[in-house]
Simulated assay, not measured.
Amino acid sequence: MALYKDWCDDDGDEDGLKRYLALTEKEGGRAAVIDLLGETVRSHYERLDRIADDIDLLGYETAAAILRELLPTKPKMRAGDLGEVLASELAQEMLEFDVPVRRMRFKDGREVPMRGDDFIGVNFCSDDGGLWLLKGEAKSRRKLGKTTITEAREALKRDDGRCTPISLLFVASRLMDSDDEDQADLGRRIRNEVGKKALARNRIDHALFTLSGNGPIDALVEDYKAAEAGRNHAVVNLHIEDYDDFIADIYERAGDLGDD
C-alpha cells in the first residue's frame, strides 16, 4: 500500500526545478491507512523483525512494554519526530529518494531530538551512476508560521547547501556497519563525499517538509517561489486539522501490538 497515494490529495504546483506539494486528507483516507501509519511510525524506532522476536520470546504485552520505552511521550517531541518520519516516507514515495537510515532507532533518549539534517535521501544519476543526495528539513507545528519556515530554509542553506558533514558521516557509518555489501558500499561513497565535496549543487536537492494544523500557509508559498536557482526544491505541507489528536492517536497505535 502506498501511504500518501491512499491517504492524501495533492494541490501542488511545479515551476522549473521547484515543486510545491499541498497535501490534505482524502475523505476516508486516514481510515484507509491508519494501521499502516501506526506500523510505519513503529518501524522508525525499531526493526519490525526485532519486535516480532520479542513477541515470540516474551509475548505481546512484554514486547509492547519494550517498544513503548522507545517512543516519546511528550507532545512536542512526538510532533517533531512524526514530522521527520512522515518526511522520510514522503521522500521515498513522492521524491524518488531512498532514506537508508532511520534515525529514530539511534536516539540516546526518547525525549531528546536528533541533531543535524532531519532527513537525508539517496539516489543515483541515470547518466553516470553518480551519487545524488537530498538534504531535508522537517517542521511540525499546530500553527505553522513564517518564523519556523525561515528557520528551516536557513538550515537548508547552511554548509553552502550541502548536507552537513556530521549528518552524512552518521548515515555513512550506519551503512558501513551493515553486512549487506551494497549498503556498505553506499556508506563508503557517502563518506568519500564528506572528504571530497565533489557533488555539484544540482546533485544536492533540498526538501522542506511541514506538518501543520493550519493551512494553506502563505509564507510557505512565498518560500517556494523564492527558493534559489540551480537545484531541485520540494516544499511540502501536510495539513491535519485535528493536529494534536492525530499525533496522540498515531503514537498510541504505534505502541499497541495487539494480542494476536
Rank of each mutant, 00 (worst) to 15 (best):
G16P: 02
L17Y: 00
K18V: 07
K18E: 05
R19N: 08
L21N: 15
L21F: 15
L21I: 05
A22S: 10
L23V: 07
E25H: 06
E25N: 00
K26F: 04
G28A: 03
G29S: 02
A31L: 10
I34Q: 15
T40M: 14
T40F: 06
T40R: 12
R42P: 02
R42N: 03
S43Y: 04
R47C: 07
R47I: 04
D49Y: 13
A52V: 11
A52I: 13
D53G: 12
D54L: 10
D54V: 05
D56C: 11
L57T: 13
A63F: 06
A63M: 07
A63E: 03
A63C: 07
A64M: 07
I66D: 00
L67E: 09
P72M: 05
T73N: 12
T73S: 13
K74N: 07
K74R: 11
P75H: 11
K76Q: 15
M77C: 10
R78P: 06
R78G: 06
R78S: 07
A79P: 03
G80M: 04
D81W: 02
L82N: 01
E84N: 00
V85P: 04
V85N: 07
V85I: 15
L86N: 01
L86M: 05
L90H: 08
M94N: 04
M94Y: 08
L95M: 14
E96S: 14
F97Y: 15
D98Y: 06
D98H: 11
D98I: 14
D98L: 14
V99H: 07
P100T: 14
P100K: 13
V101P: 03
R102V: 11
R102T: 12
R103H: 12
M104Q: 12
F106E: 03
F106C: 07
F106Y: 15
F106S: 08
G109T: 06
R110E: 04
E111S: 00
V112Y: 14
V112N: 14
P113Y: 12
M114P: 01
R115L: 10
F119R: 02
F119D: 01
I120F: 02
I120H: 00
G121E: 02
V122M: 06
V122W: 01
F124V: 14
C125A: 12
D128L: 10
D128F: 13
G130A: 13
L131P: 00
G136H: 05
E137F: 13
E137I: 05
E137Y: 11
E137L: 08
R141V: 03
R142G: 13
G145S: 12
T147S: 14
T147Y: 04
